[in-house]
Design a protein around this nucleic acid. Sequence first.
RNA 1: GCCGAUGUAGCUCAGUGGUAGAGCGGCUGUUUUGUAAACAGCGGGUCGCGGGUUCGAGUCCUGUCAUCGGCUCCA
Length: 599
Amino acid sequence: MAAPSYEESYLYRLRHSAAHLMAQALTELYPGIKLAIGPPIENGFYYDVEAPTPIREEDLTKIESKMKELAKLDQRIIRLVASNREEARSKILEETTLGQGPEVAEYKLQLLEAVPEGEEVSFYDQQRTDRAGTLHRFIDLCRGPHVDTTKEIKHFKLMSIAGAYWRGDSKNKQLTRIYGTAFESAEELETHLHNLEEAKRRDHRILGRELGLFMFSPRVGPGLPLWLPKGATLRDTMVSFLKEEQLKRGYEPVITPQIASIRLYEKSGHVITYKDKMFPFMEDDEKETYILKPMNCPFHIEIYQAQMRSYRDLPIRYAEFGTVHRYEQSGEVTGILRARGFTQDDAHLFVRPDQLLSEFIGVVDLMKAVLNRLGLKDYRARVGTKDPASSKYIGHDDNWTAATAAIEEACKTIGLDYELSPGDAAFYGPKLDLIIKDALGRDWQMGTVQVDYNLPERFELEYTGEDSKPHRPIMIHRAPFGSLERMIGLLTEQYAGAFPYWLSPVQVAILPISDRHVEAAVALKEKLRDVHGIRVSLDDRRETLGKKIRESQLQKVPFMLVLGDRDIEQGTVGVRSREDGDLGAMSLEAFLEKVAPLR
RNA sequence: GCCGAUGUAGCUCAGUGGUAGAGCGGCUGUUUUGUAAACAGCGGGUCGCGGGUUCGAGUCCUGUCAUCGGCUCCA
């Protein structure tokens, strides 16, 4: 028998009940509080409420104690079903409000309206009879299911408070969301909290500083990273890899400016649709307005358009590591995972309709190659398709159908597992996104391939067909990394800073044991660097070997070469690997042979 | 942008209204070292920034900026 899914599991019910228990505690502690919605989530649960007085983090202990108190009362959790909508409505207004007045039911009534006609409306009642024989109840509109009694809810912890918009819409009122987690045993709860602590140590912002990859400065500005030598080296390595790969696949490099006249972005439509995400505009003496570029596509289009194109010229693939700036809202900036200035490994493919599939296959193949090379296994591929209910999309249905089919076909051909996600298409076309989780389990969109019918239309792009008549090309936007910043941030977390040999900013650290070995160490360094192209550092400080090893180890250098009297006499190096420790003395040739396959 | 939290030395953190501290790092000296931290000494601070309360503010109030966790949005 297959293991039950999370949604079907006891743990899921337990967390759901914990959310209700919290709601009950909140109702007692904050009379007049309006309950909204409180589901289980991946690692716990939350409840959204509108509180009469602000709830602060220091209040969590108090709420937790109240929950424990209520849990111990062994309240039976009983499912009630309303026989019709009117009954459900009056139940909400009368019973769930516990005499606090109908206004506390504001959100519950809206939830009831959202329940499809004909669907069963259920409530869950936490009830007990006290010593005096009085019946106490706490009734909440809920689909369920729940555990049988509050006594089962023992191992939980309230985690944090956040604002959350009612129904996830920023136009709606912001409610207070309280996050908590619950487990079946104290050990599991402990392990979870411990894992959270561990995850913090893999945080790319911490490792980025410790490993000297990048930094931020208040004098430069939020979300604007400064790449340090080691980070820049790592980044250059990734760029070289992809450039080489793209060259093999028929891409042509282009380079475009950081700013452009506003007229370019008026033509592309971005001034209307994207204005609030752009840095403030600039004006020169002639009153021409310039924009710091938020995306590269319009520039590449200009290049395409600069001359007549024949059907024989297509596909054209323009690639650029294009640095863009987007004015992300202040609360959204997160290290280099979400920066205000970042570099996309961008390319735009101008293709004929009959080339769409083969080009898509080529792009998906490249993405797969990139994932393999980077050693990323823990990713999801998502095909974003039209939301049939929405009218925001442009372009003919036939095109959409063809493009979506091409994306799916390409994934199947290359063997990339994907999931369909209706509503996740761009307004101008369907797309394929790669999604990777960070150390804290948050999803990040990385690589992307997007079909675009919009820009060719807006810029009136053409090529001359076999029939001597003008035809409109299709554009494909694609970025296998997504952005260098985000990809490096994620890689840092995935590898906990211990990058694979080929990516490591320092691949080999030479550690002379004492002053008299430095001369040989310098010679070794030059040989490895100049003859073998290895990124090598030399620690010639007057420190003990133990200390040098410790520091190289903490810097996650893949290999250390110890050089002492014995080595110089015998012509060997003492090899230590980051993962396996001391490997003993060996000839330089033997070491080179060892690392050769890791390049 | 919104809700909640945090901001003290390069880093990690202590300091509950009365003379700003520790460990690590740094510098200097000694040590010349064989697989994860030698020893000693010395520096180092506009307590994020502005305003206020107070005889007195790192500590209380207020504004602001940055960062962190969420929401919304996104590569």
